[in-house]
């Protein structure tokens, strides 16, 4: 290789002949964009795109590990099975009901807690800590704890009822009472999450607005509805999206409290998916159920996003 030929080729294709190190240390715009996006794209691909595509693919298979047969393409057979499956309807209905009850429930309780924590306390940490604890507790622990609270013989709830002269109740014998107990546990657990997000939002509202309102003679209620609520709207919508999606995926608390009982009266869709895949090893049907839940979550998220866009355009 001679020196002249080297110079010549460099003049022809200057970019291609640049040493690879300088391409990394001083990249052009396109390379830089690819480099910066690659980690996120790879992570999304591995953690989300691949599993979701695989899930959708499996939902079209007849794949049950108990059959001893290899996977077979089954078209929509798994989806066609759902309308005739009473447990599917019950679990879906319970999931929707849990969402409709616990999302507004935890918003109201969480809002109240946030307003309380936002009061000018001398020492702030005990309030903050007690807000944080329910959120920091693993879901299954919360389920276990509330399961014991409501146990008919050893539970503290019946103990208190007995002490104040009320009849003791077998909570988990009644589908409605068991469901109510589950909702209570979820609201307790989720309220602290809502409260923390709302508290963060409250602290971004400048005090000067309230001082101005005071000067103008607006009462506390008026201030809440005219200042606090409108300025918190974006925060609340974000909190609601997170809360609604986790509510649709409710698993741990009812699983630990009632196991779906009595019978299958308090089972949720996530529990039914778990049962079909982990216990029954019917991966095809389990995946199809999971696709339905995924669709449900997407639908709700889309609705919220529309809501945000609507509010953004209005302001």
């Amino acid at each position: 290789m001679t020196t002249t030929s080297m110079f010549k080729s460099q003049a022809d294709r200057p970019v291609a002949r640049r040493p690879w190190l300088s391409r990394w240390s001083d990249p052009d715009d396109t390379t830089l964009a690819v480099m910066l996006l690659a980690p996120a794209a790879i992570l999304l691909g591995v953690m989300i795109v691949y599993p979701v595509s695989r899930l959708i693919y499996t939902s079209f298979l007849d794949l049950s590990l108990t059959s001893g047969l290899p996977a077979r393409f089954a078209g929509l057979a798994n989806f066609r099975q759902m309308p005739d499956d009473p447990v599917f309807w019950q679990a879906t209905w319970n999931t929707v009901l849990i969402t409709l009850i616990t999302v507004p429930g935890s918003l109201v309780v969480g809002f109240a807690l946030a307003l309380l924590a936002n009061l000018p306390f001398q020492v702030k940490w005990p309030v903050r800590l007690s807000l944080l604890i329910p959120w920091a507790l693993p879901l299954s622990f919360a389920g276990l704890i509330f399961g014991w609270f409501f146990h008919s013989e050893y539970g503290v709830v019946n103990d208190v009822l007995g002490r104040i002269g009320l009849p003791r109740v077998i909570w988990f014998n009644s589908p409605r009472l068991a469901f109510a107990a589950i909702c209570l546990a979820i609201i307790w657990k989720a309220s602290s999450f809502m409260a923390m997000i709302i508290l963060a939002g409250l602290q971004t509202i400048p005090r000067s607005l309230y001082e101005a309102a005071d000067v103008d003679g607006a009462g506390r209620m008026r201030q809440f509805f005219e200042i606090t609520l409108p300025l918190l709207k974006p925060t609340i919508v974000v909190a609601l999206i997170f809360r609604t999606i986790t509510a649709l995926q409710t698993f741990d608390i009812p699983y630990m409290m009632t196991g779906g009982g009595p019978g299958t009266e308090t089972a949720t869709l996530a529990m039914y998916i778990h049962q079909n895949t982990v216990s029954f090893l019917d991966l095809g049907y389990g995946s199809a159920l999971a696709v339905v839940m995924f669709g449900l979550s997407m639908l709700v998220t889309a609705l919220y996003l529309r809501m945000i866009r609507g509010s953004g355009a209005a302001s």
């Binding site: 108990t66 988990f172 014998n173 009644s174 009982g261 009595p262 019978g263 216990s279 029954f280 090893l281």
Partner: peptide, 20 residues
């Protein structure tokens, strides 16, 4: 498919005993 047989029976026993 015993797990499914078992689940059908035991959840029903539970529901009947609970009065549901």
């Amino acid at each position: 498919r015993y797990n499914e047989v078992s689940e059908a029976i035991r959840t029903t026993v539970n529901a009947v005993l609970a009065g549901a």
